[in-house]
């Protein structure tokens, strides 16, 4: 039988960010964005920094996550992220400032572009999450 809802739990080492029954989850997988509906086949996926969205009876929730993992079962999705912020918690001005700063930094020859790129992706995701959420 296909369950009607997915129990979504988003956790970071610091706190449980989000826990609710939802209809749909869209996550930034390492191999591309993917959506999960109730009854999805069990899956374990690596996540990259990006925007996670879920829809439910409460409307829509947008979150910015940095790298982590997601465990999917037919009735449950557990997102283990290094960091995660809900769109409403993000200070857009500061996030944009961070992005600018990192874009500057990545051009400098002495920095390790890989590390800066990861940080840049994380902050870009925050900006994107805020904009997506505001645009709704």
């Amino acid at each position: 039988m296909i369950p009607s809802k997915i129990h979504l739990e988003v956790v970071t080492p610091e706190r449980r960010v989000f826990e609710r029954d939802v209809d749909e989850v869209i996550l930034p997988g390492a191999l591309g964005m993917f959506g999960v509906l109730p009854g999805h086949a069990p899956m374990l996926s690596e996540l990259r920094a990006g925007v996670a969205t879920c829809h439910g009876s409460f409307g829509r929730e947008v979150m910015a996550i940095s790298a982590g993992f997601a465990e999917v079962t037919p009735e449950r999705v557990t997102v283990m992220a290094e960091t995660c912020e809900r769109a409403e918690e993000i200070d857009i001005a500061r996030a944009e400032a961070m992005v600018e700063e990192l874009e500057e930094e990545i051009r400098k020859p002495e920095t390790d572009p890989e590390i800066v790129r990861l940080r840049l992706m994380k902050h870009l995701a925050r900006v994107q999450a805020k904009r997506t959420s505001a645009g709704s």
């Binding site: 390492a30 086949a41 069990p42 899956m43 374990l44 996926s45 079962t73």
Partner: peptide
């Protein structure tokens, strides 16, 4: 349960 792994288990 047989999980789908993305990427494959060794990398993961």
């Amino acid at each position: 349960v047989d999980y789908i792994y993305e990427p494959e288990p060794q990398v993961l």
